[in-house]
């Protein structure tokens, strides 16, 4: 099957020609499959945010190409706006972009720009609010009267309301408390399951990535250093640590257990997996 987004040899240099010139990403290539839930991970300054801003044409590559459904998105610069409707990008701390009088109007900003009629906009606002976990009574409030977590949900709904084929979220849970964090991630998982859309989750939290995604892309020093299923990536714990990242806490527990002579796969990355493999071990032991 043809990948929905294909990145070829992407390079971006900030401030070319000034004393502050630096390469944010260099020679990045990867593919995003239709319906996939991809995690992008990397330490601060590894180029994650720069990379995703290329996927919907907010940044123009210094070199390389971004293909959307097999077409170079910069082939016709006039149609770049259409790409932005189809590849939805939720920025880091998106609550700072709210500006309308009511939450509903703010969510409607994207659909309105698409030129949809009022009934369709209304339908999409309600649908997006439910995906983002916003209760309908909040929609008529001013976004500035909402709590931090609610504001963020309004902002995320504002992107979902465009019904993008690809939804990209840059650190969606940053700065939320643990309960808000896991609720929001549950909403995103539900969104992925119910719509079958393609989702890209950017984070620097291994645990967050491990619990949600199907495939991981590891960025370091402006390039892709690893890519694969969580199991493949987390079994290379030493390499991850070498680039300044760590494995999920559960994987650490499993690695320590293995070091102490317990015979389990060290690349487990959820509590449920570890429980299962420990129980299997005990079951196996009891059977012998």
């Amino acid at each position: 099957m043809e990948p929905i987004i294909q990145v070829e040899n992407l390079t971006h240099t900030y401030g070319a020609g000034t004393p502050f010139q630096r390469s944010a990403i260099a020679g990045v290539s990867f593919q995003l499959q239709q319906g996939e839930f991809l995690g992008v991970i990397g330490h601060t300054g590894s180029g994650k945010s720069t990379l995703i801003q290329h996927l919907n044409g907010l940044l123009k590559p210094t070199a390389g190409r971004v293909l959307f459904h097999g077409r170079d998105i910069w082939a016709d610069p006039k149609r770049i706006r259409e790409v932005r409707f189809r590849v939805g990008l939720v920025f880091q701390y998106p609550e700072y972009q709210l500006f309308e009088e009511t939450a509903a109007k703010d969510i409607a900003f994207g659909p309105k720009n698409m030129g949809l009629d009022d009934t369709e906009i209304q339908r999409r606002v309600e649908e997006a609010a439910s995906f983002a976990g916003l209760s309908p009574d909040l929609l008529d409030k001013s976004p500035f009267d909402l709590s931090g977590g609610q504001k963020r949900r309004v902002a995320i709904a504002g992107v979902i309301a465009m019904r993008p084929e690809v939804l990209i979220l840059d650190e969606p849970s940053a700065g939320l408390d643990p309960a808000g964090r896991s609720e929001l991630l549950q909403n995103i998982r539900d969104y992925h399951a119910r719509t079958g859309g393609t989702v890209v989750l950017v984070s620097h939290s291994m645990d967050e990535i491990a619990e949600n995604v199907q495939r991981i892309l590891v960025l370091s020093r402006s390039g892709v250093v690893m890519s694969g299923t969580p199991h493949e990536v987390f079994s290379r714990a030493e390499e991850l640590e070498a680039v300044g990242l760590s494995v999920p806490q559960i994987t650490k527990v499993a690695m320590e257990l293995r070091r102490r002579g317990v015979d389990i796969d060290p690349a487990v990355y959820t509590v449920e997996d570890l429980r299962r493999s420990l129980l299997a071990l005990r079951g196996g032991g009891a059977g012998a």
Partner: peptide, 13 residues
């Protein structure tokens, strides 16, 4: 720049 990009991502022109 950041806010501009965020609104552009929602189709602002």
């Amino acid at each position: 720049d950041k806010i501009m990009s965020a609104q552009k991502a929602r189709g602002a022109d």
